[in-house]
Design a protein around this nucleic acid. Structure first.
Lengths: 340, 340
DNA sequence: CTGTTAGCGCATTCAT
DNA sequence: ATGAATGCGCTAACAG
């Protein structure tokens, strides 16, 4: 009742030729007679024969699959990133195996391991917000499975990575707020483990110092990005003797929660208090109270670039001697002003 | 410089035993001596040996990969769906190969084909909004690759599918609006090819008829879900002699665009005009002007159920004789009222 | 209790 | 111009 997916063997049997001849015919090998070649290709077409990728792995040691590991697809940031990855993968005739870590280090490890067992040819990774050791990732390089990180990248140098320059764009953001008259600027930052969070704090302090504004560390709070913690952060900031007139939040989702809280606290958005954020989610266009500005981080471009690098690495004839040159690409963010 | 990923062969060589002994030892085969077994498992652990999934395919004819094809991940509806799929897949030790059709029939076909070549064990599919023939999909069943559809399902009966009962929830939505005093109710529907769109229209007419409200077909417009077409639809509806006081839109994204347009046209949302929609996106919680109500369609549950069915099919010892019983599961939608 | 062998689908080297 | 044989990693039937 069920048909078998056609194989070269079947084609060979039907035409009473050997499998190798059939194989060569399909590949337009010069030494195959025109007659045989046409017959094979004709029959292949009829049967809908296409090579079994799984079988090809044995010969070529390639699965033609790239693994993608990221925190979650729910955030539009990452689903846009997937598009960039998919785009480049398709160009290279590759498919995409996806796993979400859900910001859980254990799950991340497990997914990576599964990907290894599936022999993905390479990996694109955006690490969980709690990942601090990268052994499960760098281990793959030992097996010659290249890994390229994007956006949430490890804070070590001997990996390939593409990221947004949080330091620079935070400087812009802080300067923007200062130019708009703000002196008490709060920061709702993420877990300190995240490289970007440290950069954010550093940039913030740097600018304040340059502008000779007193640094008050009680204005900088750390959260785990959950709504609950954002609310707590807001409580903390608002109960200060001199509360901030502007707050920089780690991303738009946190900004939305913070804004929601501020509104409940009867603060007038963009009047009593301003918000500047990161990601520049499309959805903010529909909001009545979007952040005043948001740093566009170009997830599509970041992911696309990361995937391009991955394919560069895959296509490089692997010279075991050559010292690896680790790629560290910065995609510049841009501060988008939403309304005046 | 690079290590090879360890294989049974390597373990066997090191211990000077045969590969099959090593294999059996790993599987706790009863006929293997305790000594050998321990040695093998010990060494396997040391080397970090794990079976090569790709190789397993040959023996078991299973890749332990499910393919997922859906229009796009950008819509939160689908990214939530992925979570349901991933959850069940993980439970069954499966991985997920993802492809987005971007609502393009050609891409959909190509992805399905790639998945076939990768020998996915089964497929979960939500079809593009323009897909009307399903040959590329049902063809896979011929090869004994089961396909289960969810949400955007084909309008034919000999496929497995899980969907939301648009007909019933639309009836609820229309009745809700009528109970709130509306008599002129517009519909911004999607392409007529989509099964759900026909159901929507049918349900709409049915209720109006029951309630003895005159049906005016100029109140029902069809779009392709793009912002552009939504605006055009709004123009059309608003220029009617007796414009609608409420509009049902095919999903929240369309609703957001429609609402945006209505606001630009100086209409007061929920006063001059009300919107009811589908999907109940989390993001609507942050909106100043969300739709009055939205039909929650439980993407996670739909996708989870679809995947469970897929695994039922996969686990069924394939009795070629038995007539296939096609599953058609309805996940009831629920009209969520956002504000009074 | 363990080894030998075959086979899954394919490309390729070697032989004819 | 074509076929036979091999090997990729693994399992299982068969043979000791």
């Amino acid at each position: 009742m069920y048909n078998k997916i056609p194989t070269l063997k079947e084609i060979a049997q039907r035409l009473k030729i050997s499998v190798s001849t059939a194989s060569r015919a399909m590949h337009n090998h010069p030494s195959i007679g025109l007659r045989t070649k046409t017959e094979v290709q004709q029959l292949a077409k009829e049967l809908g024969y296409e090579p079994n990728q799984t079988a090809l792995f044995f010969k070529q040691q390639k699965t033609h699959v790239v693994g993608v590991v990221l925190p979650n697809l729910k955030e539009e940031f990452f689903s846009q990133a997937i598009n960039g990855i998919e785009y480049v993968a398709k160009e290279n005739n590759y498919s995409v195996l996806i796993g979400q870590s859900h910001d859980d280090v254990e799950q991340e490890k497990q997914i990576i391991n599964t990907m290894k067992n599936h022999r993905v040819d390479g990996l694109i990774v955006s690490i969980s917000k709690y990942t601090k050791d990268y052994d499960h990732l760098t281990a793959l390089e030992k097996y010659n499975i290249p890994v390229v990180f994007f956006d949430r990248v490890p804070g070590i140098s001997f990996v390939h990575k593409v990221s947004s320059d949080i330091y620079e764009s935070t400087k812009q953001a802080v300067e923007f707020l200062i130019n708009n008259g703000h002196r008490r600027i709060g920061v709702i930052n993420g877990p300190n483990e995240m490289k970007s969070c440290k950069e954010r704090t550093d940039a913030y302090m740097k600018v304040l110092k340059n502008k000779k504004i007193k640094i008050d560390l009680s204005l900088v709070v750390f959260t785990d990005l959950t709504q609950q913690k954002t609310f707590e952060a807001m409580i903390e900031l608002l109960k200060l003797k001199r509360p901030p007139t502007a707050i920089i939040t780690i991303n738009d989702y946190v900004a939305l929660d913070a804004i929601q809280y501020a509104r409940k606290a009867k603060l007038k958005i963009n009047k009593d208090i301003c918000f500047v954020s990161y990601s520049n989610l499309p959805i903010t266009n529909y909001l009545a109270f979007p952040p005043l500005a948001s740093v566009e981080q170009y997830p599509y471009e970041q992911a696309k670039k990361a995937t391009e690098i991955l394919f560069e690495l895959l296509n490089k004839t692997n010279n075991n001697e050559e010292k690896i040159f680790y790629r560290d690409v910065i995609i510049k963010g841009q501060l988008i002003i939403h309304k005046k």
